[in-house]
């Protein structure tokens, strides 16, 4: 039940996208995120959108899951859209009381919304197709050159993978504690903000007590198995770039370059 815990969004599969080296996917996603912020014309958006849709299609991610991750930021998208619509100066489109919606505002709002949607799609493609372990592995490799300037690449990756490993455990624990307090008549839904915040105490205290105990146990168990940090540590999974990685990198680079030209 632990491996199956619904953390984040990893959607297990065997597609070519799943099999890509995590570094490839991290680099491409990182590149896309940067590129997105330079785009404001439709053809450019469409180009990036087609690339992402192609990736999602090949990866076999059900649209339902995509919709779920988009839905979580729908409110933010709507908020920024409305903000842009009314706050951008320019020729008036319509008035609403003291507020004026402008044509440039409409355009800016749509551009921002488009950027956000594509942003979510690209990070989703990464997290849907890359297991948390592969993700931290890839990150550790990518951070490695920065060790010279004092970035503790291994430690950062280890912290991330421990955190990732324990998020499902903590969620499970939180759910269990919550149920146990509900069995004692606790109510987490009703009341005003202060009441609700206070109703969290019976969950948070046991959760923290448990987390600290678990951290102690983990440290002990790691030391008992001779963990001493990254120095001299060899790897079980050695990452290797293959032909498909090169192809994916080259292909994405071309699309991103084209998008930047079209802007």
């Amino acid at each position: 039940m632990f491996s199956g815990a619904p953390f984040g969004q990893y959607y297990p599969g065997e597609s070519p996208v799943h099999r890509l080296d995590p570094r490839t996917k991290i680099v491409v996603t990182g590149g896309l995120v940067v590129v997105l912020f330079f785009l404001y014309r439709w053809p450019a958006f469409a180009l990036v959108g087609v690339l992402l849709m192609g990736g999602l299609l090949v990866a076999g991610i059900p649209p339902r899951l995509l919709w779920r991750s988009l839905r979580s930021i729908l409110a933010i998208i709507a908020f920024t859209f409305v903000l842009q619509l009314f706050m951008t100066p320019g020729p008036v489109w319509f008035r609403l009381g003291p507020l004026t919606a402008t044509w440039p505002g409409l355009r800016m709002g749509m551009v921002t919304a488009g950027r956000l949607v594509l942003l979510i799609l690209s990070t989703s493609l990464l997290t849907f197709t890359t297991s948390p372990i592969a993700l931290t592995d890839g990150l550790e490799y990518l951070l490695r050159p920065l060790r010279r300037v004092g970035v503790p690449a291994h430690e950062i990756a280890m912290m991330m993978s421990i955190a990732l490993r324990f998020i499902p455990t903590l969620l499970e624990e939180a759910e269990k504690i919550m149920k146990a307090q509900m069995a004692r008549g606790a109510d987490f839904q009703s009341g005003n903000v202060i009441r609700r915040a206070r109703s969290m105490v019976p969950i948070l205290v046991p959760l923290f007590v448990g987390a600290f105990r678990r951290a102690d146990d983990l440290a002990m168990a790691m030391e008992a198995r001779c963990y001493r940090g990254g120095e001299g540590r060899t790897r079980l999974r050695v990452l290797r770039m293959g032909a498909s990685d090169l192809a994916a990198l080259a292909g994405s680079a071309v699309v991103m370059a084209a998008a930047l030209v079209l802007r």
Partner: peptide, 13 residues
């Protein structure tokens, strides 16, 4: 219906 979970001492706060 009172329900006592496994390791109930972990819910004391």
């Amino acid at each position: 219906v009172g329900l006592v979970f496994q390791y109930p001492e972990q819910q004391l706060f």
